[in-house]
Amino acid sequence: MNIFRLAADVLHVVSIFLLLLKIKTSHSCAGISLKTQFLYMIVFSTRYLDLFFTKPWHSALTFYNTIMKILFLSSSAYTIYLIRNRYKHTYDKVHDTFRIHYLIAGSAVLALVFHIRLTPFEIIWAFSVFLEAVAIMPQLLLLQETGQVENITSHYIFCLGSYRALYICNWIWRYFMEHRRNQWLAWACGTVQTLLYADFFYYYILSQRQGKKLRLP
């Protein structure tokens, strides 16, 4: 564990908190992509299969990871529940049109081609890494379709993007300090994922400087 990894995870938790806060306080899930939330649900449930095999009390780090994994899984399930049930009437279905089956199929094909080892567990893990890299795309498309973005929604996406950017710092740190060299798959996908946010980051920082709401062109 290093400061970048810890800060990244804190931002991830903050982003989830902001998302739920937005939905709860405005009694609306307008501007939130159900498709992105659904993709994260798939990402977490395929990535964290090891919850079934790992003893949480194996070490302090495994315990920490287990708590976080359960938190991510349950919060994304809860978010989907809120969008599909309680605040269904506010869901912007017309604009949330990204064809996610292409993302899922593409990630599955990539996972079959690129993986660390040829085992079901490693292929499913690779699938989750590929899918996470592109899971934000429906959300970004939805924002572009609607243009105006509520502050709290833009903070949510900013935190989510920063979380993965900090993971890159964490990997650089570990490369030099712990000599971890065989992580090319996570590094490559994490970098692609962070680059997807680049455009958003630019407009977010611009809007924060001007003290205005984020407006995407």
Binding site: R5, D9, H12, D50, T54, H58, L61, T62, N65, M68, K69, F72, I116, W125, Y167, N170, R180, N182, Q183, A186
Partner: peptide, 10 residues
Amino acid sequence: GDDSEEKDEL
């Protein structure tokens, strides 16, 4: 590293 070391991130 071994398996447990490789999958120690979220």
